[in-house]
Amino acid sequence: MARLNNKVALITGAGTGVGRACMEIFAKEGAKVVGVSRTQSNLDEALAAVTDAGGEGIVVAADLATPEGAQKAVEATLAAYGRIDVLVNSAGVGYSYQDNHPGTMDDVVNTTPEAWREVLAINLDSGFHMCRLVIPEMQKAGGGSIVNVTSISGYQGLPGAHTYTAAKAGMINLTRSLCVAYAKDGIRANAIAPGFIATRMVESFLPMFEDAAVAESITPMSRPGTPEEMAYGCLYLASDEAGYCNGSILTIDGGTTARQ
């Protein structure tokens, strides 16, 4: 229970889903966690779960789609703990975002330039802003681990959600490029590529799994994954156990892409 003992982990998208699961599990494994999200109430719930379990951390409400938001998150982490050993880029939006932002999960023809930029800013620019600020801190410290949360949609063709798939593909190749550029500094960059995960992003689709035939057509395991299962993948990549793992994309999808 100490795979991240004494490490400082900065986790984005920490209010819900995979980011929140990372925050709780990393804290149980000994990390001091800093959770970042746009919604303070979600962050407060996540931090309460951490502290109730005996962990240590802080939260920062910030919009990471902007350079200013990323700066706020990094400065707060350094002020609290003095360094950043692990960065998990889990901030992002998915299909549920379209409920209040129509047109953001459509195909190219039906996506406005404004919607394109909006989703890219949240799902891809946020990772860029965070890496740009965190990598120099890791260089000063002699190393670190970056874990990006992408999606199997980053290497699949889909009939819709083209901005989302483009952003996830961009994050996959950003991960590989970070590996090539910064391995000499002791910085590892890896990613997980989740399949269909039971989070708020896709909750309107979850009833599909109630039909056994439909569920099996989605994934051989016939069920969605859990945020905790994704977080354990992030934990491995963040930990010293993955010391020779660099530039890897860990697919965690119940076998969905094995059929391709």
Rank of each mutant, 00 (worst) to 15 (best):
S204I: 06
G195P: 07
A212L: 03
M201E: 12
M208A: 14
T165N: 05
F196L: 11
E216A: 13
G170A: 08
S153D: 12
A169L: 02
I187C: 00
G186D: 01
L178Q: 07
F205A: 13
F205P: 01
N148R: 03
A161G: 15
Y155E: 11
V149L: 13
N173C: 03
G157W: 11
M171N: 05
R188C: 02
N148T: 06
G186W: 00
A213Q: 14
R176F: 01
P207Y: 08
R176K: 15
Q156W: 04
G170I: 09
I187K: 00
S217R: 13
A183V: 13
E203L: 06
A215D: 08
R176T: 07
G154H: 09
T163Q: 10
A198C: 06
K184A: 12
V202I: 15
Y155G: 09
G195M: 09
R176V: 10
F209Q: 10
P207H: 09
I187P: 00
A215W: 08
F205K: 08
V149S: 11
L178Y: 05
N190D: 08
C179E: 04
A181I: 05
I192T: 02
M208N: 11
A167E: 14
V180S: 02
T163A: 15
V149C: 11
F196D: 11
P194M: 13
L158M: 14
T150A: 15
N148W: 01
E203T: 12
G160L: 10
A181F: 07
S153V: 05
T163H: 02
V214C: 02
Q156I: 07
R200W: 04
R188T: 01
I172R: 10
F196I: 12
